[in-house]
C-alpha cells in the first residue's frame, strides 16, 4: 500500500464524538498514523504478518493502519467503551478484522509473549502525571519485537532514561519529530488549534532487538 493511499483511508475514519478530557482523548491524525505504521513496516519489518497491539486505541486509527499494512492479527485495547464502539465501526467500514479488549492498560495481564509489536499514541500525562510512562512500561513488557510510541519532544530525555533504565528496553530511538495538531476539542483550549512537538519513538524490548535492518 502507498503512503498516500494509507493516509487517505485513515482520513475517512470517525473520531471521538464526545472526547473525555480525563483520558486525554485526542485523535491520532491520519498524517501521523500513516507515517508511523509506514516506517514500522518499511524500515523495520515490524508489521506485516505480525501480531500488533494498539494500546489505548481510542477510535482505532493506529490499529486500522497496522491492519492495512498487513498485520496478521491486530488487538485494540482501550479503557473506554464508547471509543471501542467507534473503533469497531471504523474497522467494519474499512472491512478490517480487528480484535478489541476493554481494559485499563495498567492492569493488563498477558499470559505470554504473543504480541510482536505495540503501537500507541498514549496520553501525554498532562492530565494525570505519569500516564505516558504507565503505557510505555506495559508495552515494553508485552511486545516481543518493538514498541512504537509518541511522546512530547519536551520529555525526550526523561522518556529515554525511563525506557532504558527502568523498563528494560535494549534500545530507544527517536525516528522523527512531528507536529501534533491538537484541534480545539476541549473548553480549556484557548487557541483554535495548537501545535505540539512530538517524537516518534521506536523501542526494542530487552532480549530481542527485533529484525531491525
Amino acid at each position: 500500500m502507498k503512503l498516500k493511499q494509507l493516509e487517505s483511508m485513515l482520513g475517512e475514519l470517525q473520531q471521538f464524538s464526545n472526547p473525555k478530557v480525563e483520558l486525554e482523548q485526542y485523535p491520532t491524525g491520519p498524517h501521523i498514523a500513516s507515517r508511523m505504521l509506514y516506517a514500522a513496516e518499511n524500515s523495520f519489518g515490524d508489521v506485516s504478518n505480525k501480531v500488533v497491539a494498539d494500546f489505548g486505541c481510542g477510535c482505532g486509527t493506529l490499529g486500522a493502519a497496522a491492519s492495512l499494512m498487513g498485520a496478521e492479527q491486530v488487538i485494540g485495547i482501550d479503557i473506554d467503551s464508547q471509543s471501542l464502539e467507534i473503533a469497531s465501526l471504523n474497522a467494519e467500514d474499512l472491512e478490517l478484522d480487528i480484535n478489541f479488549i476493554q481494559c485499563d492498560i495498567r492492569n493488563l495481564v498477558w499470559r505470554g509473549p504473543i504480541v510482536d509489536t505495540v503501537v500507541m499514541n498514549p496520553p501525554f500525562g498532562t492530565r494525570r502525571k505519569g500516564a505516558d510512562m504507565d503505557f510505555l512500561s506495559a508495552a515494553l513488557k508485552i511486545a516481543f519485537q518493538a514498541v512504537y510510541s509518541l511522546h512530547k519532544t519536551s520529555t525526550r530525555e526523561h522518556v529515554k532514561k525511563a525506557a532504558l533504565r527502568d523498563f528494560g528496553a535494549s534500545s530507544a530511538e527517536v525516528l522523527c519529530e512531528l507536529r501534533f495538531d491538537v484541534p480545539q476539542l476541549y473548553k480549556f483550549h484557548k487557541k483554535r488549534e495548537v501545535d505540539v512537538a512530538v517524537d516518534l519513538w521506536r523501542f526494542a524490548p530487552k532480549t530481542n532487538q527485533g529484525n531491525s535492518t
Binding site: 493488563l108 495481564v109 504473543i114
Partner: peptide, 9 residues
C-alpha cells in the same frame, strides 16, 4: 486467539 493470552488480573 485472544482468549489464549488473557489472564484474570
Amino acid at each position: 486467539f485472544t482468549h489464549n493470552m488473557l489472564s484474570s488480573n
